Computed example of a mutant assay.
Amino acid sequence: MPEKKKREPMDMIKQNALYVETVKKENRNQTLFTKFHINYKKLNILTDKPNTPPKEGEEEDPAVLLAVQRARMEPEKKYPKPQTSSQEIGWISTPLLASDCGDRRFNFSRQNTDITSYMEAVWKS
């Protein structure tokens, strides 16, 4: 088996030469971009104050208005079916039975007894 050569510790001169070589390689492969452009057609950098009326002839973009309206919609109106597994819970929010307050089988309203009304008065004071 051949013996492995031991590396000599680098002195300051070798470290500096290595650093100079690294900087030269970086400068050789580095390119400077001076041509910049904006990827969006219509860009309003500064917005008007919220309490000022819109200027004459200035209209809002209908595509932006449609996107804002769509973002405000509920998920059930935006999508035909749930997009994630957590949306599946509560996706169909219409009740299965029409609620009838007179039916005692489904209406369990709060009932007070002497003890509960007494404790409620105690907790309020």
Rank of each mutant, 00 (worst) to 15 (best):
P75Q: 06
K42I: 08
Y40E: 07
T52M: 12
A71R: 11
S117K: 11
D103T: 10
K78D: 06
F108G: 08
Q111H: 10
R110L: 14
P75M: 04
N29M: 04
E58V: 15
H37P: 00
Q69S: 05
A121G: 02
A98L: 11
K78R: 15
M1P: 07
H37T: 04
D103H: 12
P62C: 03
P50V: 14
A121V: 02
Y19A: 05
T47R: 12
R28M: 02
E58S: 06
Q30L: 04
R72T: 14
Q83Y: 02
T94Q: 08
P53G: 09
N39S: 11
P53R: 12
R110H: 05
V68T: 02
R28Y: 05
E58R: 01
S117R: 06
K49C: 11
M12W: 05
K124C: 00
M1K: 08
N44G: 07
T47H: 11
R72D: 10
A98T: 14
M12R: 10
K25L: 05
F33L: 00
N16F: 15
A121F: 03
K24Q: 03
G57T: 04
E3T: 13
I38R: 06
T22N: 07
Q30K: 10
N16E: 01
V20T: 06
I45E: 07
K4L: 13
S93P: 06
E88S: 12
K78L: 15
W91F: 15
E59F: 11
M1R: 09
T22Q: 05
F108E: 07
T31M: 01
M1Y: 08
C101A: 14
E8W: 01
D103Y: 12
Q87K: 12
F33W: 01
E76I: 12
G57N: 07
I13Y: 00
A63H: 07
L66E: 15
T52W: 10
M10P: 00
Q15N: 07
E26M: 04
N44Y: 05
S109M: 03
T34W: 03
E8H: 06
Y118M: 04
K41Y: 05
F33M: 00
P95V: 09
I115C: 02
E74F: 10
V20P: 00
V23Y: 01
F36S: 01
I115F: 11
N39E: 13
V122I: 08
K24A: 04
S85L: 09
